[in-house]
Amino acid sequence: MRRFYIKKIISSGVILAVLIFCGSSFLLGTSPQSQLPKVKESPEKIQPEEISAGPRNIKEKTAVFVFLGWLWLSILVLIYFLQQKIKEVDRLQAMKFFEAERKFKVNHRR
């Protein structure tokens, strides 16, 4: 059952990474004009976002989206390892390993 969930997490992670890459390619294709400051439409109406932020050039855009892909991949791998570690520490707790370890250390110090 646990393995099923791990597989599910990894597969959804891969789908997410693919989506990010596809999304990035879509965004890379947008016009550079969209990054320029917009012209004020009306002097009375407030323009909350006059200077848009975001990657400045294609190199930075690519770097950011590649970083995002790697970030999610690393997170998924880390989650997998953490789950393995949780299994192990739960087993140790059930065996009262930490209690025994503490008693041993106290006796050892004496």
Partner: peptide, 16 residues
């Protein structure tokens, strides 16, 4: 992960 993704896709702009 969610924080970084949101920050990349919805960057905070600046007004006049």
């Amino acid at each position: 992960g969610i924080l970084i993704t949101i920050s990349v896709f919805f960057p905070r702009g600046l007004g006049n």
